[in-house]
């Protein structure tokens, strides 16, 4: 039986039969692979720890009839510190969920994405990091490698360069921001979603206790875009992490970051056609 070796991160696991597991792996060499880990659920199995979600391994796989079979596994990293913090674990599971759902489109860029994914998991393991910003950065890198990076600099309808005072919405179908003029002319259709931040910045019906993380279904066609959220997206796209603020503005800035992450989350869910569940735990 021909064999091959890969470096891979486990992004999904399902039970098979009495003691086996089907593992979805994202490998640096071949992208998304599904393989069987035989006996991985038996107590005392040599492969049990290596078959865990988010474990990074060097694997030897044998070509099988339908699924390949893991014959040897050597652990590289297991990110133990993620298991002590619900927020960090939820982000890591979100990354795995995204990879599982969109990984097929990354097979051409597998080596590059593998490094991005590994770096993102390592960042989550560092205590005190800005996880929302790292998540935003990961979402943008993923979209970039999929060739679906959102257009934030120019209006996706008229191609006019966008400025703060000219922002209206982020359109999920068109994959970018739309200027006020195009939006008010009715050049775009669909139902939209207003974030609390939008209401705050426009001064309408702002309620402090409204949950920022609450989102409509992924089927909403556009999200209202505020200057602050737009700036956060532009900065994250340019890989610039703003220093931490310790003043009254800090809370607003954090909310903008959450709103930017939620916007990209909805955009990605729109592309995948599926609601991601991991971030609901935060």
């Amino acid at each position: 039986m021909p064999t091959y070796s890969v470096r891979a991160i486990n992004v999904g696991t399902f039970n098979l039969g009495e003691a086996d597991k089907i593992i979805t792996l994202f490998s640096a060499e071949r992208g998304l692979i599904r393989a069987v880990a035989k006996g991985a659920r038996k107590p005392g199995s040599k492969i049990a720890g290596r078959a865990e979600l988010l474990a990074v391994n060097k694997l030897l796989l044998a070509n099988g009839k339908s699924l390949d079979i893991i014959t040897q596994a050597e652990g590289i990293e297991s990110f133990k510190s993620l298991r002590n913090d619900l927020d960090r674990l939820s982000y890591a599971l979100y990354y795995a969920e995204l990879t599982c759902n969109l990984g097929q489109g990354l097979n051409q860029e597998s080596e590059l994405y593998f490094d991005v994914f590994l770096k993102a998991l390592r960042q989550l393991c560092q205590a005190g990091g800005n996880y929302i910003y790292h998540c935003l950065n990961f979402q943008l890198s993923l979209l970039d490698l999929l060739g679906l990076r959102p257009e934030l600099d120019s209006c996706v309808v008229c191609r006019k360069r966008l400025i703060e005072s000219d922002l209206s919405v982020f359109h999920h179908e068109l994959g970018g921001a739309i200027c006020n003029e195009c939006f008010s002319k009715g050049n775009v259709e669909g139902k939209g979603r207003r974030s609390v931040l939008h209401l705050a910045e426009t001064g309408n019906n702002y309620r402090h206790n409204e949950d920022l993380s609450s989102k409509d279904t992924f089927s909403s066609h556009f999200t209202y875009l505020t200057p602050l959220v737009w700036k956060k997206l532009i900065l994250a796209a340019a890989n610039y992490c703003a220093p931490a603020h310790h003043n009254v503005q800090a809370e607003v800035i954090d909310k903008a970051l959450v709103a930017a992450r939620n916007l990209l989350e909805t955009y990605i869910e729109h592309l995948a056609g599926k609601k991601m569940k991991a971030l609901d735990l935060i």
């Binding site: 865990e52 979600l53 988010l54 298991r83 002590n84 913090d85 619900l86 674990l89 939820s90 599971l93 735990l281």
Partner: peptide, 9 residues
């Protein structure tokens, strides 16, 4: 497992 740890947290 990861699922178990998530539930515990």
């Amino acid at each position: 497992t990861i699922e178990g740890d998530t539930t515990v947290l």
